[in-house]
Design a protein around this nucleic acid. Structure first.
Lengths: 224, 224
DNA sequence: CGAATTTTATACAGATCGGTACAATTATTC
DNA sequence: GAATAATTGTACCGATCTGTATAAAATTCG
């Protein structure tokens, strides 16, 4: 037994920790992080509350561990893997994201995206907020890889747009639109077909014109 | 004095009610509805808590009143009005939405969109959730009017896509992307230019193919 | 077996939440 | 000025929250 025996967690301590994390995963995925109490996690996991605080010193650490697990299971194990089996080319895989979303939204247990929920309800500069933003960035990077693999111009720009369509589809679905993924895929298909006729230079010019226009017309600060 | 004298609120009661609502507006706009307590609203408004409960029997009613006021001020007084002054044609106005968003996101007090926050954190079938979804639908209808005014095909489809880009831009900005509105406008411009070459029939065909594809490849239910 | 580690139950601290009881005070209105 | 309506302060209820103190019980392992 070397000093690295904890890399493969088979001990009692690791099992207990996993039970806590599994309960937190189910609860945090279904409900708001702020609405799930530590006592609920303790009860659901069958692990005493004291033990829970022995493993995670504060609830925040449990949330951070949840974010890692969610990214591993959802982003990698579900989104990336699912897209790979549904599309042969990077282009097809970009569009297949919305097929996966459609099934996700139709799931009876769909309660929106935990990442977006946490982005909404956590304080702007907090560790949880930063960690969640990083998980979202990981998803956008994935879209960027596909765009680059498809040989598209300005792949980062397309990834940003794709990300917004994904986020918007999730929010619309959460707001009750059952066809959000279908509508998003339609728009995504149109956007993708047109993106080829877009050069990186065009993007820069457009950005500049936006900035000039915004500054020129500004009159007064409205109510936000 | 007729029995309709309360349509123009000048009485003491109406003034008090407005003070409460103004405090709630500022607080609910800046922070989460669940994190703002009734005591805080009472303190900020300078109105006793008992009086607050005389006007609004429960906090939920105050939230519902806030949603109406927010829609009146933000959707109508800021978004619709701002877009009108910045664009002469419906097409220009559609794109001008993202210019407004850019200024919004740059505002120091930007804390995301209250509508989206409430959609995230309220229960799916609750009155607050439904009312908020209706306010979002109002915004989408506005985009649909512009699309129809621009003579675009499938204006409702474009409105849905536009709404998702708007929602996604807000979420991305909240997650830290300062250029979210610029990236959204780039994508929106590309999408808009390509939307002309899209017929309503194409949309129906694409939707059907999505449904077939999703059902055919389905293997197992993943972790949501 | 015996010792170290881990988990357990209970009870509680301190804070915040939405909502209410009560009695007194203030302002309006005829 | 008197009757009515509206607002006030304070204290409280019961429930919830994160986190802890304590000491016993269960498990692992040399």
């Amino acid at each position: 037994m070397s000093d690295l025996d904890d890399v493969i967690p088979t001990g009692r301590r690791a099992v207990t920790r996993q039970k806590i994390l599994e309960a937190a995963y189910a609860l945090f995925t279904a409900q708001s992080v702020n609405l799930v109490g530590v006592d609920t996690i303790s009860a659901r996991s069958g692990v005493a509350k004291m033990t829970l605080y022995h493993h995670f010193q504060a609830k925040e650490n449990l949330v951070l561990a949840y974010l890692d697990l969610r990214a591993k299971r959802w982003t990698v194990g579900w989104l990336k893997a699912g897209v790979k089996t549904r599309g042969a080319t990077p282009r097809a895989r970009l569009l297949a994201i919305f097929d996966l979303f459609h099934e996700w939204f139709e799931d009876e247990g769909f309660e929106g995206c935990p990442f977006l929920r946490i982005i909404c309800e956590s304080e702007a500069g907090s560790p949880v907020h930063k960690a969640t933003a990083a998980k979202l960035g990981q998803i956008e990077s994935f879209a960027g890889q596909l765009a680059r693999g498809a040989g598209l111009p300005d792949p980062n720009g397309l990834a940003a747009a794709w990300m917004m369509l994904m986020e918007g589809a999730i929010m619309s679905a959460r707001a009750g639109r059952k066809d959000a993924a279908l509508k998003a895929k339609e728009a995504a298909a149109v956007l993708l077909a047109a993106w080829d006729r877009k050069s990186a230079k065009t993007a820069a010019v457009k950005t500049a014109s936006i900035k000039r226009g915004a500054k020129a017309v500004r009159k007064r600060k409205p109510s936000r």
